[in-house]
Design a protein around this nucleic acid. Structure first.
Lengths: 351, 351
DNA sequence: CTTTTATATCGAAGCGTTTCGATACCCTGT
DNA sequence: ACAGGGTATCGAAACGCTTCGATATAAAAG
């Protein structure tokens, strides 16, 4: 169609200088109301938009932020990080930033596998969502580019962090079960190398301690923890393992919802009723939690909010360079649904 | 740390002109082996990388492609489009392109809701994954910017397309069921406004026709189709509706795996055995298909490949402007697992 | 009525690249 | 010995924008 309009064209058409048009655009210096109107009309009429690359060139910033996620997390396990991405996008959009999304595999060779935007300096900051190879963090850290980790933590490097209150969430879960009369509470989960999962397990333990049930908290025959990525299969295997051990338990806290789904299936298959014979509680509140039978009681994690806060935090780093590290904790909320309502069910029956 | 290195610094350090460094970088004109080596050493030593915005400014291109996906698809339903995104990213990376990811809601008001990168001309092309508001396509189409639709089609506007061979896939599914002796085959699905789902339904019908079972293909009491987005709940509702109609059927083809999961759950709850009493077959081959009990037989859709092809197609458009429209069809593959293996099960029992 | 001060506009430099001639060299072939 | 062509290098313009003075006018202050 027509050639690309530039700021020069706008200036010519409006009968003013290029600088004036720029001032109108940026709302910076002095421009008379009359001139401003005229320029704005011309701009609107020709649907002119400044070229970002030109702006970037002079401003030195890029207007981009990198979003790194492991390929497994993006598309392999659950919707969790997609929602974090969505939240980040929405927030970045507000500040007119673009998200450059890239993925990393589970191995990471420093120079080759590094996202291009890091080498090229094409981003002003980076968000890393979920667990990634440690080497990635070690690589980025000395790069002197602001970055924030979401739901992940490097074992030795201190970074900007947006975290879930996993400990507290797991406590809520256990306390809920205790309130409903469950006492022998098991824990099932995969991915125990992930800090979040470990925190959940600790939260589970400390809530039991608090309640004077230390023998349950300590009883490893009630705990199924494996290093593999969490899948429904892991959950099923966990439940079956515990049941085959012939230990007594009447409830199970799962490391996340995916695991819980596996538990639900396995229990159903073995003819056990949930929540009649056994309560099941998840963590994350992914969508399937509301599509199971029975509906899954779980600890809701505000995933969008994680993304939003990550972006906000990153902006704070940008505006305040050398301002130390920030940590942000995002609270959880217990969603009571059907998989734990033994008491409610009984009450219901009594009515 | 140290200030940003520029091409000038490299030139100075290597004792050559800026243009020579540029020539080395781009591998274009004549550079003596000796000079090239020297320049390359300096570049490597200082870890210099050309600023993308400067390059873009002069080249006129942006090095970005837009990736638009509805927020529902990104994080609401299934992993399907996340994998398309992943495939697209991997392919774009090969050509040194960045993906600018953005989402659209289910309503779309032309100027305000339009992705910024479209207005600002910050992308060289656009990929649209999954169904989006029609207005989005109407908006982009006249913009004179190459775009390709993945697994979606505007009702009246002709676009570059990457499509799934839905019709064929559904035929494969039905033929598989027929081979295994199933005859009264139902169809359950949501989102029937989506072209892909409709094609699957048509494929289902035409395979039945081929087999001389037109009365099944035409019998609407065997078909459950609703306009809502597909969820497991829809699948459960579908199965229950059909069963409550008291029509005879021994197999069900689902519009996608999510629906199939709902069917599986509902059937189990009603005490029906799969595949003993009823075969269930899905479409898409999402990860949960391999985590159900029984494992779900389904039509595999190569999701990564959809993304890869979309990017390739977009590049063809870029290299060949005004070269007409391209259509690409991606084939499917039947994954026979447990939910349809009545014959195999019988055989197994007989052994 | 002159001196400040605030307001309005503009020209030009500069951001970091690529690319288009221009220049200079060294061979070859005649 | 000289035209011509391949090789090697460079200077300068251009890409589209922001921003820093400079200049000019009008309003406020002395």
């Amino acid at each position: 169609m027509m050639a690309k309009m530039t700021i020069k064209d706008m200036a010519r058409l409006a009968g003013v200088s290029v600088s004036t048009v720029s001032l109108v655009l940026s709302n910076h210096g002095y421009v008379s109301a009359k001139t401003r109107r005229r320029v704005e009309r011309i701009i609107a009429k020709h649907n002119y938009h400044p070229r970002q690359s030109a702006r970037n060139l002079v401003s030195g910033r890029t207007g981009n932020m990198g979003f790194i996620i492991s390929d497994i997390h993006l598309s392999g396990t659950e919707f969790f990080y997609s929602r974090v991405l969505l939240g980040a996008e929405l927030e970045a959009r507000k500040k007119d930033y673009y998200l450059l999304v890239t993925t990393v595999g589970d191995t990471f060779q420093p120079p080759q596998d590094a996202p291009r935007f890091l080498k090229g300096g094409d981003v002003d900051g980076v968000i890393i969502a979920g667990s990634v190879p440690e080497e990635l963090v070690s690589y980025i850290h000395p790069l002197n580019i602001p970055y924030v980790l979401v739901d992940y933590k490097h074992p030795s490097i201190d970074s900007n962090l947006v975290q879930i209150e996993n400990h507290d969430g797991a406590c809520q879960a256990v306390e809920h079960l205790l309130r409903h009369g469950y006492r022998r509470i098991a824990f099932v989960g995969g991915s125990c190398r992930h800090a979040s999962i470990r925190e959940r397990f600790r939260g589970y333990q400390s809530a039991l301690h608090q309640a004077g049930l230390s023998e349950v908290a300590q009883d490893d025959s009630l705990h199924f923890l494996v290093p593999e990525e969490t899948t429904a299969l892991i959950g099923a295997r966990g439940i079956n393992t515990l049941l085959d051990r012939a230990v007594q338990f009447d409830a199970v806290v799962c490391a996340n919802d995916t695991t819980a789904l596996g538990c639900l299936n396995a229990l159903q298959e073995r003819g056990l009723d949930v929540p009649g014979d056994m309560a099941v509680i998840g963590f994350d509140d992914i969508r399937y939690a509301t599509e199971t039978k029975p509906l899954l009681t779980t600890v809701h994690v505000p995933k969008l909010e994680l993304g939003v806060q990550a972006v906000r935090l990153l902006f704070e780093c940008l505006e305040n360079p050398g301002g130390g590290l920030y940590h942000r904790s995002i609270g959880t909320e217990l969603m009571v649904r059907e998989s734990t309502s033994r008491v409610l069910a009984e009450t219901g029956a009594a009515v």
